[in-house]
Nucleic acid binder design. Sequence first.
DNA 1: GCATAATCGAGACGGTACGTCCCGTCTTCTG
DNA 2: CAGAAGACGGGACGTACCGTCTCGATTATGC
Lengths: 182, 182, 182, 182
Amino acid sequence: MNTGGRPRSEEARLAVLHAVDDLLLEVGYSAMTMKSIADRAKVSRATVYRWWSTKAEVLFEASALDSVKELTIEASGDPRADLVAYLDALAVFLSRSPAGIAYRVLLTEARGDAAVAELFSSRDVLGDTSRPVLERALPGAVGDRVLASFIGPVFFWAASGRDPADLDARELVEAFLRSVRP
Amino acid sequence: MNTGGRPRSEEARLAVLHAVDDLLLEVGYSAMTMKSIADRAKVSRATVYRWWSTKAEVLFEASALDSVKELTIEASGDPRADLVAYLDALAVFLSRSPAGIAYRVLLTEARGDAAVAELFSSRDVLGDTSRPVLERALPGAVGDRVLASFIGPVFFWAASGRDPADLDARELVEAFLRSVRP
Amino acid sequence: MNTGGRPRSEEARLAVLHAVDDLLLEVGYSAMTMKSIADRAKVSRATVYRWWSTKAEVLFEASALDSVKELTIEASGDPRADLVAYLDALAVFLSRSPAGIAYRVLLTEARGDAAVAELFSSRDVLGDTSRPVLERALPGAVGDRVLASFIGPVFFWAASGRDPADLDARELVEAFLRSVRP
Amino acid sequence: MNTGGRPRSEEARLAVLHAVDDLLLEVGYSAMTMKSIADRAKVSRATVYRWWSTKAEVLFEASALDSVKELTIEASGDPRADLVAYLDALAVFLSRSPAGIAYRVLLTEARGDAAVAELFSSRDVLGDTSRPVLERALPGAVGDRVLASFIGPVFFWAASGRDPADLDARELVEAFLRSVRP
DNA sequence: GCATAATCGAGACGGTACGTCCCGTCTTCTG
DNA sequence: CAGAAGACGGGACGTACCGTCTCGATTATGC
């Protein structure tokens, strides 16, 4: 058996992923086309299609790694400070980071596009990154409801286009903690 | 003076708005095209363009009226019950109602499309409808932060595709009230 | 029986006919639209359609009168000079006059458009105007073949875009006369 | 160096040229649209536009080769017979042949459309094909005036919709020769 | 070193939506 | 009634992108 053939160009792969990041910020999701991605990456259109079926897929791969990286909070020893740090990171992520913008866009796309929904089924970025932080502060009490109460306010703030700088994460965490501990 | 001209067809207007509602649910926002709207509404494409510039605009008009209607909670005399009713209505709105789906999609579209962002600047549906209900329960204390804490959890729940039936609005309201009243 | 009603506006009629003449020269036949005619004539589109079915019809009416006028040669007493005068008039008509341009365009349109062909069946402008002049020079000898020999060279000259000033009508008439009188 | 790219489809090219020929006869020039050409040729509209800017350009290419072919008269040894043969061919060409119809239509279109006029500047089909035949009969005497006298009558005959069968080419040639040789 | 094989670029292909323009018809108001 | 205004359904315009394809050129592997 011949396992030969020219190997995939890592250079091309990275060029595409970076192009997608750039274009998302510059022109937005709907104005970003497979053609504009290929042109920006200086790669042929066929090369993009060879490795990704849709722009949602490219975008997902482009943001997946960054998402976890940007939302991972090291344990500082002070669980309450970690919660504040997480919300701060989340606010910036959802409002400013290409990966976070991509996350919001793809989440919206997921409704009405089963292929995109499928991408999310394998990985719950916000849940996976927030749960450890929450567990440190509230051991054993972290269900979906509590998680939504923690993340929701910041998520809504970012989604509705408000400035993350106007958020007071410390105040939000205190309110959150009051809400779970009567 | 001649004020002439054939009057606008109300029939055509409504057909378009209904077509948009239908298509949003059936095929989703990005697969919905101006052509498919016109075809579904049995209206010429030019007629759609005559009155709306983009599909975002049609969608906004189609959902604006319904949005307020679906989120308006009559004062029952029990402010706490009204909060519960609002969150229930909000969960259904964001997860199931065409108007609510449209709201989420347009909000995402607003980032990176100034024209869509402009549409929202004139009308803050969630704020306008929730603020009166909150004011009845917490007179004088309703800033943006409090509003985000109230709405956020449900918004996140719906945005991440979770079932609104699994939400316990009563519990959410109690947690919310604990968070604001130390 | 009611014979009342507002009478047709002669002003509008003339405005349309002049607009057609102007547009034919300025933008050519195919770029001339019913809308541009109406706009140029400062007349409503419906008014144009009320009196003419197609732009070919307007053009025909606009050029019919002028055509005969421009090609009618008074008998000078010298039949040969009249032939020269006719060819000179014909060259200018076909190359420069709006009516003549219209004539050539409509003649081409006639092939493949029965409605336009119909317009010509009632009136043979070139035949009607040239025949009397020819009869004066060659009594009794004017068949279609002779007429074609007389008109043809100038017609071809104009049709192929050559300058009418480069034509020597006197020489053409002499050649023509040599050709018919052995 | 990469000179790559999928090669042009000769099949598509011919399908378009034939479609144009067919449509010209069936529906005429103005009713022939770029869309109808593409549909008839079973080719995408973009493919037509990729290679030709306007329907005039397609039509020109479709008729150019045939035009010369249909109007080329082999020297028979009898110059006078060759002139008759040319006029016969010309009459059929202008009245019946798709290429000839196209020639007449484009010539009319050339007035008022500089792009079409440009097409003709590179190639004078009637002049190029008739001049050699004329030179054999009248060596050294073939100017534009003589050429117009030779071609004009047949051109007018065809342009005004008369039947080419009613033309007597032999008689026309004799008249022509009388006109040039006193 | 030389076939094999997969990648890469370039760019044509059939297709579809875009937003615009004009078609010819209509509906309403004004003169 | 005529005429102006202008909306209507329809359809072609020329452009852009879709996803697929067919090339020649390149870069690995394995004989």
